[in-house]
Simulated scan of single mutants.
Amino acid sequence: MGTLLVDTGRRNRVGEFRGVSGPYWSLRPMCGGTEWGAEPADVRALEPMERLRAKIARHDARGAGRIL
Protein backbone atom coordinates (compact mmCIF):
# COMPACT_ATOMS: atom_id res chain seq x y z
CA MET A 1 0.00 0.00 0.00
CA GLY A 2 1.31 3.46 -0.94
CA THR A 3 1.29 6.60 1.14
CA LEU A 4 -2.17 7.71 2.19
CA LEU A 5 -3.03 11.34 1.55
CA VAL A 6 -6.02 13.67 1.90
CA ASP A 7 -7.16 15.69 -1.12
CA THR A 8 -8.62 18.85 0.39
CA GLY A 9 -9.72 19.97 -3.08
CA ARG A 10 -12.12 17.00 -3.17
CA ARG A 11 -13.87 17.35 0.18
CA ASN A 12 -11.05 15.65 2.12
CA ARG A 13 -11.14 12.48 0.03
CA VAL A 14 -8.54 9.94 1.15
CA GLY A 15 -6.42 8.27 -1.49
CA GLU A 16 -3.30 6.21 -1.94
CA PHE A 17 -0.47 7.98 -3.79
CA ARG A 18 0.19 6.24 -7.12
CA GLY A 19 2.55 8.62 -8.88
CA VAL A 20 2.88 11.91 -10.73
CA SER A 21 1.01 12.62 -13.94
CA GLY A 22 2.02 15.97 -15.41
CA PRO A 23 1.25 18.69 -12.87
CA TYR A 24 -1.02 16.39 -10.81
CA TRP A 25 -0.53 13.66 -8.26
CA SER A 26 -2.43 10.46 -9.02
CA LEU A 27 -4.41 9.15 -6.07
CA ARG A 28 -6.50 5.98 -5.89
CA PRO A 29 -9.38 5.40 -3.47
CA MET A 30 -8.46 3.30 -0.44
CA CYS A 31 -10.93 0.54 -1.24
CA GLY A 32 -10.35 0.46 -4.98
CA GLY A 33 -11.79 2.45 -7.82
CA THR A 34 -10.74 4.98 -10.40
CA GLU A 35 -7.66 7.10 -9.82
CA TRP A 36 -7.99 10.86 -9.88
CA GLY A 37 -5.59 13.75 -10.36
CA ALA A 38 -5.02 16.00 -7.36
CA GLU A 39 -3.39 19.40 -7.23
CA PRO A 40 -0.23 18.96 -5.10
CA ALA A 41 -1.10 22.15 -3.18
CA ASP A 42 -4.42 20.54 -2.14
CA VAL A 43 -2.85 17.36 -0.75
CA ARG A 44 -1.80 16.78 2.85
CA ALA A 45 -0.79 13.89 5.08
CA LEU A 46 -3.42 12.15 7.15
CA GLU A 47 -3.81 12.98 10.81
CA PRO A 48 -3.54 9.99 13.19
CA MET A 49 -7.33 9.55 13.58
CA GLU A 50 -7.86 9.81 9.80
CA ARG A 51 -5.20 7.16 9.26
CA LEU A 52 -6.89 4.82 11.73
CA ARG A 53 -10.32 5.33 10.09
CA ALA A 54 -8.85 4.66 6.64
CA LYS A 55 -7.17 1.45 7.77
CA ILE A 56 -10.38 0.23 9.42
CA ALA A 57 -12.41 1.03 6.28
CA ARG A 58 -9.94 -0.91 4.13
CA HIS A 59 -9.99 -3.86 6.53
CA ASP A 60 -13.81 -3.89 6.57
CA ALA A 61 -13.98 -3.73 2.76
CA ARG A 62 -11.59 -6.68 2.48
CA GLY A 63 -13.64 -8.66 4.99
CA ALA A 64 -16.81 -7.99 3.00
CA GLY A 65 -15.11 -9.10 -0.22
CA ARG A 66 -15.30 -5.66 -1.87
CA ILE A 67 -11.53 -5.53 -2.48
CA LEU A 68 -8.72 -8.08 -2.74
Rank of each mutant, 00 (worst) to 15 (best):
L46P: 02
G37W: 15
T8V: 07
R58S: 05
R51P: 03
E35Q: 12
A61T: 06
A38R: 06
Y24A: 10
H59S: 11
V14Q: 04
G32I: 06
E35A: 10
G15K: 09
G65V: 06
E47D: 13
R11F: 11
E16K: 10
E35R: 10
G22S: 07
I67E: 03
A38I: 08
G2M: 02
V20S: 02
S26Q: 14
A57E: 15
M30Y: 03
R53Y: 14
R13M: 15
V6M: 03
T34A: 12
E16A: 08
G32T: 01
G32Q: 04
G32S: 04
G19Q: 03
G63Y: 01
V43H: 09
R28Q: 14
G33R: 07
G65L: 06
T8H: 09
R66D: 02
L4Q: 01
A61M: 01
N12D: 14
L52Y: 15
S26F: 07
D7I: 12
T34W: 09
Y24M: 14
M30G: 04
G32K: 05
T8W: 03
M1P: 00
A54N: 06
I67G: 01
V43C: 13
E50D: 04
T3M: 09
R66Q: 04
E50P: 03
R53D: 13
E50R: 04
Y24K: 09
R28D: 01
A45P: 02
L27W: 05
R10H: 15
D42K: 13
A61Y: 04
L27H: 06
D42L: 14
A41I: 11
R66I: 09
R18A: 12
E47L: 15
E16W: 09
R62F: 07
P48I: 14
G33N: 05
L4W: 08
A54M: 12
P40N: 07
P23R: 05
M1V: 07
G15C: 14
R58V: 14
L4Y: 06
D42F: 15
A57V: 11
G9W: 12
L4N: 00
L5H: 05
E47F: 11
L5F: 08
G2P: 11
M1F: 03
P40D: 04
A38V: 08
G22D: 04
G32V: 03
M1C: 00
E16P: 01
V20T: 09
G9N: 11
R62I: 03
P23M: 08
I56K: 07
V6I: 15
G65E: 03
G9C: 09
P40R: 06
C31I: 09
I67S: 02
G65Q: 01
R66H: 05
A61C: 03
G33F: 10
G2F: 01
S21P: 00
M49F: 15
D42N: 15
A41K: 13
K55Q: 14
A41G: 05
R53V: 11
E35V: 09
R53S: 13
G32A: 05
R10S: 13
G15Q: 10
D7S: 09
G65C: 06
D60N: 11
V43A: 12
Y24G: 05
